[in-house]
């Protein structure tokens, strides 16, 4: 397998105004480097505020990194012009934590799934409609949900909807930013199964972001642990779970609830 994404020394600095009126700098990413093999799953684990979402947004070209490089197939997506970056974005898609917020609450399912197709263009309205229904079927949503608003769907259905619409773009990389965290256990397992199945069929590369080390170990080939904007530990999934080296990783291992692992058992490989 060859390397698909190579992140080198990525730094993201946020300037924010503190209550005293002065400028305050916040290092959300402090020199992050890693590689992801094509078709594999990398889990990024860390506590809240460790910079995971910032990393996700930088990878998806939705935030500009302060410095560093992100190589995708030999191109540094941090250095290209805005126009070219816009054309590259569809290759790297993202699933957000809260599907209630990532789906426009005014739009119906049909419009939501059609949007990426419209933006990519090149096919007729009829074809789009056909593709939309195919995609809904692909993620296990019944056709009658096409007329519904996101608030009329269950949490699991919404996340399926979010997956359906990114599939329309046939992305190379799918970033899942806490995509399962808002769901309850059995639904988590269903969505996780769907994701594994899609990866097997389409050969997508996953960057799976979570604070749940147990879930990460089940889904990922490799794990990186983040703390305070840095990668503090990395390794093969089972190893990290079995013999954590850093204090922060030990805390995350201790936080894995034993019970949640049983419904997930069939997913592990």
């Amino acid at each position: 397998m060859q390397t698909l994404i190579k992140v080198e020394n990525l730094v993201k600095r946020y300037a924010r105004r503190n209550p005293a009126g002065g400028q305050e700098e916040l290092l959300a990413l402090d020199g992050v480097s890693f590689e992801v093999l094509a078709g594999s799953t990398l889990a990024v684990v860390g506590e809240s505020g460790s910079g995971k979402s910032t990393l996700a947004l930088c990878l998806a070209c939705l935030e500009e990194a302060t410095s560093g490089s992100i190589w995708l197939e030999g191109k540094d997506i941090c250095k290209v012009a805005e126009k070219e970056r816009r054309e590259m974005r569809p290759q790297i898609q993202m699933i957000f934590q809260d599907p209630a917020n990532s789906l426009n609450p005014r739009w119906r399912t049909l419009e939501i799934v059609t949007e990426p197709l419209v933006l990519r263009g090149g096919i007729s309205r009829d074809e789009m409609k056909k593709q939309v229904y195919a995609l809904l079927g692909r993620v296990g949503l019944p056709a009658e949900t096409a007329k519904r608003l996101p608030c009329e769907l269950s949490g699991g259905q919404r996340q399926r909807l979010a997956i359906a619409r990114v599939l329309a773009l046939e992305p190379k990389v799918l970033i899942l930013d806490e995509a399962l965290s808002a769901l309850d256990c059995s639904v988590q397992a269903q969505i996780a199964n769907l994701l594994m199945e899609l990866q097997g069929a389409l050969g997508m590369t996953y960057v799976f972001i979570t604070h749940d080390l147990g879930m990460a170990a089940h889904l990922a080939d490799e794990i990186v642990v983040m703390n305070g904007g840095r990668i503090v530990e990395r390794g093969r999934a089972e190893e990290v779970l079995r013999e954590p080296r850093e204090e922060i990783t030990r805390r995350l291992v201790a936080a894995v609830p034993r019970l949640t692992r049983s419904p997930l058992a069939p997913i592990g490989r």
Binding site: L57, A60, C61, L62, R86, E87, R89, P90, I92, Q93, M94, F96, D98, N101, S102, L103, N104, E115, P116, L119, R120, A162, R165, L169
Partner: peptide, 22 residues
């Protein structure tokens, strides 16, 4: 800053599109 705007930008939407539709 809402995620559905970010998502649409990720699909390759331009500023004018995001403003107009989202």
């Amino acid at each position: 800053e809402r995620d559905f705007v970010r998502a649409a930008r990720g699909f390759g939407a331009k500023d004018v599109y995001l403003l107009r539709w989202h």
